[in-house]
Simulated assay, not measured.
Amino acid sequence: MSETSTSAPSPRAHLILASQSPRRIELMREAGFDVNVIPADINETPIPDESPFALVERLAASKAQAVAEAYAQTGEIVLAADTIVTVDGEALGKPADDADARAMLRRLSGRTHQVATGVCLLRAAGDDAPAAQDVFSVVTDVTFYDLTDEEIEAYVASGEPADKAGAYGIQGAGGRMLVRGIDGDFYNVVGLPIAEVVRHIRALGA
Rank of each mutant, 00 (worst) to 15 (best):
residue 56 V to A: 06
residue 93 G to V: 00
residue 68 A to R: 10
residue 117 T to R: 11
residue 133 Q to I: 15
residue 66 A to Q: 13
residue 112 T to S: 12
residue 112 T to K: 05
residue 74 T to L: 04
residue 99 A to S: 14
residue 56 V to I: 01
residue 60 A to M: 02
residue 124 A to Q: 14
residue 73 Q to R: 11
residue 72 A to T: 01
residue 101 A to F: 10
residue 106 R to S: 08
residue 112 T to A: 03
residue 73 Q to A: 12
residue 104 M to H: 03
residue 95 P to K: 02
residue 79 L to W: 04
residue 81 A to R: 04
residue 48 P to D: 11
residue 52 P to I: 01
residue 76 E to G: 05
residue 78 V to W: 07
residue 45 T to Q: 12
residue 53 F to K: 10
residue 58 R to P: 02
residue 116 A to D: 11
residue 49 D to F: 01
residue 70 A to S: 14
residue 65 Q to R: 15
residue 122 L to G: 05
residue 109 S to G: 11
residue 100 D to Q: 08
residue 119 V to H: 07
residue 95 P to C: 02
residue 108 L to E: 09
residue 52 P to Q: 09
residue 47 I to K: 07
residue 80 A to F: 05
residue 60 A to P: 02
residue 91 A to D: 05
residue 100 D to H: 15
residue 123 R to D: 02
residue 130 P to M: 13
residue 87 V to N: 07
residue 61 A to D: 11
residue 65 Q to Y: 03
residue 126 G to I: 01
residue 129 A to S: 15
residue 74 T to Q: 12
residue 84 I to G: 00
residue 133 Q to H: 10
residue 53 F to P: 03
residue 65 Q to M: 12
residue 44 E to M: 01
residue 103 A to T: 14
residue 120 C to K: 04
residue 60 A to L: 07
residue 94 K to I: 05
residue 127 D to V: 13
residue 104 M to T: 04
residue 90 E to L: 10
residue 116 A to G: 01
residue 45 T to A: 13
residue 48 P to W: 00
residue 56 V to P: 04
residue 51 S to C: 05
residue 50 E to P: 00
residue 88 D to L: 06
residue 131 A to V: 13
residue 115 V to D: 10
residue 90 E to H: 12
residue 83 T to A: 11
residue 90 E to N: 10
residue 58 R to G: 01
residue 100 D to L: 07
residue 126 G to L: 00
residue 70 A to M: 08
residue 85 V to R: 05
residue 117 T to W: 08
residue 69 E to Q: 14
residue 77 I to T: 11
residue 86 T to I: 05
residue 115 V to Q: 11
residue 75 G to I: 06
residue 64 A to R: 03
residue 98 D to N: 14
residue 52 P to G: 07
residue 77 I to E: 07
residue 80 A to W: 04
residue 81 A to T: 08
residue 50 E to V: 06
residue 111 R to V: 12
residue 118 G to V: 01
residue 95 P to M: 02
residue 65 Q to P: 09
residue 80 A to N: 07
residue 91 A to C: 02
residue 70 A to H: 11
residue 123 R to Y: 04
residue 92 L to V: 07
